[in-house]
């Protein structure tokens, strides 16, 4: 099978022999796949620059089997600027976080074009973030799309029965793989409807800092349950801020 100029992102490069890499790729039409990049580690290889994560690339490959051979790779500069869109610092760690979600939640050879487009816009948003405060919002939005696209969608607007709307002022607890159940009084691990519903929108307007961080915690719990034994390590890569 030959594939030409497929839009993709590199997720991670793993050394294979002295001179090659096996690259883990998230492609738009073929989903997550592994490709053999022969000779990519050589000093003179022109592939190296194109096979960096967090930049849109056009890849061609050939061959059957579990790991086809990469035949060409170039940076897709349609709406990507090599200088302006470079991820650094916290945005770079956020990028790794997205990659971890993709690697842990997507099966190989399972195409997710809509998620690919969201991944692309997420990376663009991370690279253009004017301040660190926007990064969490970008990630929450990405988490939602990942959950939806991989079939782990959580209903943030209705209770477990799917009919009763979640009320801003009421308290709820999350029941894994079912949804939200209303509780009479706030306890440990319960959240207000306002926090829960905020996870379904792009806006954090009208939410206190405490509520934003509760939303983050809730999403983290839901993701942890979805991931099971797999761990997300990127969070540890944020160096504790001195404030």
């Amino acid at each position: 099978m030959r594939v030409h100029q497929q839009r993709a992102y590199i997720l991670v490069n793993r050394p294979y022999s002295e001179s090659s890499w096996i690259v883990e790729v998230f492609s738009r039409e073929y989903g997550r796949i592994g490709l053999m990049a022969k000779g990519a580690r050589r000093f003179k290889s022109k592939l190296k620059g194109a096979l960096m994560p967090f930049q849109p690339v056009l890849l061609s490959w050939t061959g059957k089997g579990e790991v086809p051979t990469l035949t060409s790779a170039e940076i897709d500069q349609t709406d990507y600027n090599l200088v302006e869109h470079e991820l650094r610092g916290d945005a770079l760690v956020c990028g790794f976080y997205c990659n971890e979600l993709i690697v842990n939640l997507l099966h190989r050879h399972d195409p997710h074009a809509a998620l690919f487009d969201r991944y692309h816009s997420t990376i663009m948003a991370l690279s253009q973030a004017k301040s660190e405060d926007v990064l969490p919002l970008v990630l929450r939005r990405f988490e939602q799309v990942v959950m939806k696209e991989t079939g782990y969608q959580v209903n943030f607007d209705y209770e477990v029965d799917g009919k009763t709307a979640i009320q801003n002022e009421a308290y709820y607890r999350y029941q894994p793989s079912q949804g939200f159940i209303r509780v009479a009084t706030p306890q440990r691990m319960t959240f207000t409807g306002r926090v829960i519903r905020s996870l379904n929108t792009d806006s954090r307007e009208g939410l206190s800092n405490l509520e934003v961080s509760q939303g983050k915690q809730l999403m983290r719990d839901i993701l942890a349950q979805t991931l099971g034994r797999k761990q997300i390590l990127s969070r540890e890569l944020f160096y504790p801020k001195h404030r």
Binding site: Y97, E100, L233, E236, L237
Partner: peptide, 11 residues
């Protein structure tokens, strides 16, 4: 090097 996808964190 730090590499979350290979399970290498700061620790």
């Amino acid at each position: 090097k730090l590499s979350p996808l290979e399970g290498i964190g700061p620790e």
